[in-house]
Nucleic acid binder design. Structure first.
Lengths: 217, 217
DNA sequence: CAACGTTCTATTGTATACAATTATGATCCG
DNA sequence: CGGATCATAATTGTATACAATAGAACGTTG
């Protein structure tokens, strides 16, 4: 992507994800242009992309706002994500080579180390987690999956609750990943699919209980 | 959507789908602007949308071309579409009311009538078929599904081969739809899912054999 | 004072000019 | 003749000015 529209995309994205904007909040293109330091033209470009990822939504009157999803919709999102990531894992298991396995192990070692500390390193966890899933998606070698999945991951909710996951949850993620690697090494697509499904659905339920807790306060 | 960018979208889309452009053909924004009779700005907007539907693709050097997918990729597309449409049918089965059932029957009656003629009316078939699937998608009530699925249906290939489907294939579509309606009426999500899966996969194999035939010539 | 209509303002949409980038083709040298 | 290098042309990217549209504020009138 081009320079200005790319920086706009990144700045707006992190503005949303890092809590600069509350869900439901209205935004104007001009505000976003000011935030990203470019003109409205590339901003509109970036906004289109973010609309596709469903981080931004357009009201009936073309006004922009930060996405704000109901519990049911988030439930549905996790279900779809589990379907698609499981499918990606299944395909990846048939296409994974030794080099990829080494990379996956390295990434997950970093992840495991980051969370097995008195004070877990969330940023490193998130980054390693993203790398791990991206590598699998890449090995799935499906342009369409690569297009569809990003619209489901990293909704605002994900980032916003990440530092509320318990250390046990984070450690379990690393364990899930280890089993995924084993399934890939065994070249067993069905195993990979099952582990991935379980992995995402576990994340969903961790997320739900955190949300429920937050709702009580 | 706005006027100019909307007309650009429609014109470019039908330009591609109705055979004005061959798969793989390169296009410039200026050409498209001329075709749609508006300036490049709204064209770029329309192009973004078509990129999301994966009717247009951008090369590494930002140049536009009409999508051209390999057999493997089309296979993968049908697999994903079957997954998502089956999921939509399952959800729809839980949310369908009597009014919707009446509408579905009316749509499918029109479809059936269109194909049960000496010379099947393809245009009417395509339109009724689209309406039928759209209504189900709408009843699934999942914003994300509504966003994801359109990127999978109506790839160039679909439209280009539609008038090559045999009359038996077209008639069978109507029969599949009837069984879907029965599943909806029975409020049986699993049944609906199974029928939809079978429906899409049948379409896939009909498509494959047509393609194979075409490749021989 | 409620409901309606009218102006005014804010916001998004479009066109155009120009900048940056990428492909193309010519030229030179080995 | 093959390949690298540079100039030129084609194409995409960005900024800005203006047009169209939606929203808000205000006043008028029954």
């Amino acid at each position: 992507m081009s320079r200005a529209s790319d920086t706009a995309y990144k700045k707006i994205r992190s503005f949303i994800l890092d809590g600069g904007a509350r869900p439901g909040m209205q935004l104007t293109e001009e505000q976003l242009a000011e935030i990203s330091g470019v003109s409205r033209t590339p901003v509109r470009d970036a906004v289109r992309r973010l609309e596709n990822e469903m981080l931004l939504v357009r009201s009936a009157s073309k006004r922009l706002s930060v996405a704000d999803w109901s519990d049911d919709e988030i439930d549905e999102m996790f279900t779809l994500r589990a379907m698609l990531e499981a499918h990606a894992a299944e395909r990846a298991a048939q296409r994974m080579d030794d080099e990829n396995l080494i990379q996956l192990r390295a990434i997950n070692d970093a992840l495991t180390e980051a969370v097995n500390q008195p004070e877990p390193d969330i940023a490193t966890f998130l980054d390693a987690n993203r790398q791990f899933h991206n590598l699998i998606l890449h090995r799935a070698q499906s342009p369409r999956l690569s297009k569809l999945l990003p619209a489901l991951v990293e909704q605002p909710v994900v980032r916003r609750t990440a530092n509320q996951y318990s250390q046990d949850d984070l450690i379990q993620s690393g364990v899930d990943h280890d089993e995924l690697i084993a399934a890939f090494a065994a070249k067993d697509p069905k195993w990979a699919r099952a582990v991935m499904t379980s992995h995402i659905r576990r994340a969903f339920h961790s997320f739900s209980s955190i949300s429920a807790q937050a709702a009580e306060n």
